[in-house]
Design a binder for these strands. Structure first.
Lengths: 163, 163
DNA sequence: GCTTGACCTCAAGTGAACTTGAGGACGCAA
DNA sequence: TTGCGTCCTCAAGTTCACTTGAGGTCAAGC
């Protein structure tokens, strides 16, 4: 590995390539996240990005949240509670954590309900989908227009009666 | 509501409009799901769709699974284990349920890990993201090329060390 | 002096999951 | 017979989350 261009003003900071390798994402993804305001970098005299190691953690949180179906816009909103240039203080961190916690608990509950519901269908011997209650919490985020429906925007409950 | 066109051969079956209203999705979504092989209908002499009430349940499962970030292709694979024209028997239903269960348990575990990890950051007093372990299970589904990365396809672990 | 490698920007392409729109059929009711 | 409501098909548009590609900069090494 040849020495990275740009003077080592903060030698512990990471280049895009290093970030990408460590976070397990493509360089283009980091460019994209930065353009979207999810992460932040400073530039060397050669106009190369440098990332504080803190950003590694941010990327990790973004990826985990994303893998759970949470769209980037929501992630940005929640991470937006954290300061960009410095370590978060207790109150800031707690606010973010509480926001996540509420959402994550709701999602865990839904997954468990789905799982237990499916199990119940076997346990109760009904052998079919018709008679089991399928739980659907109020998750109204009303959005309309074209495009995918990630993190479902439901206006109505699923009507679910026996056949 | 004027009587629906087409003779009432099976009067309990639902028209697209009725299905859409009850399932809380757009008519176009039902067309789409059918084109994708996720649900099924028969046609009246007037070429109108009619859905067995069973399909209502299928749509409900699809929507719940989707809201949890599971892509349609996976949902189709798993629901594919169920027969289309009749009620599933015990073995068929169990196979589907087991497949879901495994996946759902993994997702629940990840959510809990994320939640507890965030909580831990407050509990341990470190006040920052740098020193907490962020858990990332092996979730390799290797895919490359353009397009979004739903249900994350990771080739590498998130590297996560202190700053 | 030239190549190599890592980086840069900006525009355009891509796949998933839909929606929207154009153009048309059917059947009932005024 | 004109209108309404519900349905049909097929093509094209849209959003999200990226990737790919073209064209260029910069510093180090042969």
């Amino acid at each position: 590995m040849p020495p990275r261009p740009g003077k080592p003003i903060r030698p512990n900071d990471l280049s895009v390539g290093e970030m990408a390798a460590r976070a397990g994402v493509a360089v283009s993804t980091l460019h994209f996240y930065e353009a979207e305001g999810l992460i932040e970098s400073w530039r060397t005299p050669a106009n190369h990005r440098r990332y504080d190691r803190r950003e590694l953690r941010r990327v990790a949180v973004i990826r985990v949240a994303q893998s759970l179906g949470i769209p980037l816009a929501e992630i940005r909103d929640i991470l937006g509670g954290l300061p960009k240039g410095r370590a978060p203080n207790k109150a800031e961190w707690q606010a973010v954590s509480v926001a996540w916690r509420t959402e994550l608990n709701a999602r865990i509950a839904r997954l468990e309900a789905l799982r237990d519901d499916l199990d119940g269908c076997i346990g109760c011997g009904c052998l079919s989908m018709e008679t089991c209650p399928l739980y659907n919490p109020a998750d109204v985020k009303g959005r309309s227009g074209a495009g995918p429906r990630t993190w479902i925007d439901r206006e109505s409950q699923i009507d679910h009666e026996a056949s």
